[in-house]
Design a protein around this nucleic acid. Structure first.
Length: 586
RNA sequence: GCGCUUGUAGCUCAGCUGGAUAGAGCAUCGGCCUUCUAAGCCGAGGGUCGCAGGUUCGAGUCCUGCCAAGCGUGCCA
């Protein structure tokens, strides 16, 4: 409806240009909005106010001329000028009711569209290091990312969901070493655990499994392990130097093949756990992209050579730097450390280049907001490589601050103090968790009160929306019990009898759904969809309480049932899009 | 210090990219179940949109300056 009004207005403007009322040049974006107040009609535009200045006339006069030039349209009942120069459109209710038939015809397809034109778009999200189970902080990125991806899919983009697996680098070494140290404990060796190691219970479990299957094959005496290792932080030393020394010791004592066993055991076990976890959370991926692969196939070397040849790299203090400050970053960044190791940034350049080379029209990175300082250097790198930087869009998700009642819950992966995503799902369920995560704008800080979220006792808005769906189902069951037949066709023919205010509101809200989906998708704001669903549910509950659907008058009854089934369909579609269950009964 | 983000009802948050009288959910108070599920509905109270300027027909929304919070500012990821 919005779109047809836009085209009508465009025709009117063209006519005014011919008449010389308006300059030929200007061609403004015509904004049409839904009115808030029914007195202002159904739709409104501020076009006359926007153009008044350049047309050298006042808004109300211009509005009159626009209206005069407006072509006739069947759905248009009345056009008015109001306030400072708004043009208000009153639509013919009969035309509005058509949406009920449309919903019925399109069913699950209602709300989906083709505005994305099949453009290829890649969404990379979660991408947590496989060094431990996902925690509730990752949950938000997972829920948000998958919702964005699903929305884009719904409006016709060709979406590729990807998880970047950081299976290379120092964090993985720390993990492997942590497992080995726990394994030695399993063997009966007595030695201190580094404060910078991964302390989670899962590390012990993996160590236990290795010990079960391999016995003492990897055992080395504690004295040898700890010999000449610099002191840990607890002993007044440097924790980084301490753990680095332990990693080196593990590599020399085990040899590369055996050390690799621990690396592999850790990565595969944890990655498998993450994959299951996300799948159960309704977050599928088309691809799990290995960082390690970028080193193995030479991509990292290639991209650095490329940058070096183009003069973007230089040596200083024994390290290799990327001159990102010349390309919009605050300062230059190290890509190869003094000790010869690549930084995370180095492989990330290769990764982003790889993504762009794969031919996506757009790539989206979803990061925790604490990584925001990272954006300029990635953009600088892509610029240096001659890529189109605008194809990359980075969306930031604020971490959820966790509370238990009033008390803040400390979170540290290393210390093993965290509430896992799995625990959260077990306690509140997938539906509530997803709904809760996506309910707020992603850049908004979020207080996640576990007590509230885990309190199974309602208050959770997801139930409110689901209940609306279940209620319609219940009405339909009731219909059967009354031995009433539902005549679909008659219902459609009698739609004009739905003249109650509640009914008219509901029809209007139903017709808005495709616009909401489109906007939520194009703006990457799934919370708009949630908000809409709450509003729709609210209008439905209000209607339910105000009017009986199952009335004796068959025509009216069928019309109401058609309307209410439209509500059911739209709620189901919306929840489905968010991968939240729409129950038949509650 | 500098950079990014945020600041709207007691609390948690919306606010259609500059539009008409700033909204919802909790919480508080008062009503509605012999009638399709009360996990619901109706009503009431509650606001200096962080503060101060500016831009214009019009500002919660845009620009500037302050104030406050979070994050970043590594040869960590």
């Amino acid at each position: 409806m919005k779109k047809t009004m836009q085209s009508l207005l465009r025709q009117a403007l063209a006519k005014l240009k011919e008449q010389g009322v308006l300059d030929g040049g200007l061609d403004p974006a015509i904004s049409i909005e839904r009115t808030r107040d029914p007195q202002h009609g159904d739709l409104a535009t501020n076009l006359a106010m926007v153009l008044a200045k350049s047309a050298k006339t006042n808004p109300r006069q211009l509005a009159e001329r626009i209206i005069a030039a407006l072509p006739e349209h069947a759905a248009l009942r009345k056009v008015e000028i109001a306030g400072p120069g708004f043009i208000n459109f009153f639509l013919d209710p009969a035309a509005q009711y058509r949406v009920v038939a449309t919903i019925h015809e399109q069913g699950r397809e209602y709300g989906r569209s083709e505005v994305g034109q099949g453009k290829k778009i890649q969404v990379e999200f979660v991408s947590a290091n496989p060094t431990g189970p996902l925690h509730v902080g990752h949950g938000r990125g997972a829920a948000y990312g998958s919702a964005v991806a699903d929305l884009l899919d719904a409006v016709g983009f060709d979406v590729h969901r990807e998880y970047y697996v950081n299976d290379a680098g120092r964090q993985m070494d720390i993990l492997a070493t942590s497992i080995w140290l726990r394994y030695l404990e399993e063997c009966g060796e007595i030695l201190p655990f580094p404060c910078n190691g991964y302390r989670g219970e899962y590390v012990r479990e993996i160590a236990w499994e290795i010990h079960q299957s391999a016995g003492n094959e990897y055992r080395r005496p504690a004295e040898l392990v700890m010999e000449d290792i610099p002191p840990d932080e607890a002993q007044g030393g440097d924790k980084e130097a301490h753990i680095d020394a332990l990693i080196e010791r593990a590599k020399t004592l085990l040899g590369s093949a055996q050390y690799e066993d621990f690396l592999q055991a850790g990565t595969t076990r944890i990655l498998k756990d993450i994959q299951e976890d996300l799948l159960e959370f309704g977050v599928p991926f088309e691809e799990w992209f290995s960082e390690r692969q970028l080193f193995d196939d030479g991509s990292v070397d290639d991209v650095l050579r490329h940058l070096r040849e183009a003069g973007h790299l230089y040596e200083k203090d024994g390290a290799t730097w990327f001159a990102s400050s010349l390309l919009g970053d605050e300062k230059d960044r190290v890509v190869i450390r003094e000790n010869g190791q690549f930084t995370y940034f180095a492989s990330d350049i290769a990764y982003h280049l790889d993504k762009l080379r794969r031919g996506y029209d757009r790539i989206i990175d979803i990061w925790g907001a604490d990584h925001h300082g990272y954006i300029p250097r990635i953009r600088a790198a892509l610029r240096a490589l001659g890529e189109d930087v605008d194809k990359l869009q980075v969306l930031l998700v604020q971490f959820a601050v966790l509370y238990r009642g009033r008390e803040k819950v400390p979170m540290s992966t290393r210390a093993g103090e965290f509430v896992t995503l799995r625990q959260l799902r077990n306690e509140v369920g997938k539906d509530a968790a997803r709904f809760f995560y996506v309910m707020r704008r992603s850049e908004q800080h979020m207080d996640f009160d576990l007590k509230l979220a885990t309190s199974k006792t309602n208050e959770n808005p997801v139930f409110y929306v689901q209940y609306a769906h279940a209620r319609v189902c219940s009405v339909l069951r009731q219909l059967d019990e009354n031995n009433w037949e539902r005549d679909h066709l008659s219902g459609m023919q009698n739609l004009q009898r739905l003249t109650e205010e509640h009914e008219i509101n509901l029809v209007g809200t139903l017709s808005r759904y495709p616009e909401v989906v489109e906007k939520a998708a194009l703006q990457y704001e799934p919370h708009l969809l949630i908000q809409y669903l709450r509003e729709l549910a609210n209008e439905f509950h209000t209607y339910y309480n105000a009017h009986q659907f199952l009335v004796e008058d068959a025509g009216l009854r069928d019309a109401r049932l058609n309307l209410v089934c439209g509500v059911k369909q739209v709620i189901a579609n919306g929840l489905d899009l968010l991968r939240i269950n729409a129950p038949e009964a509650m």
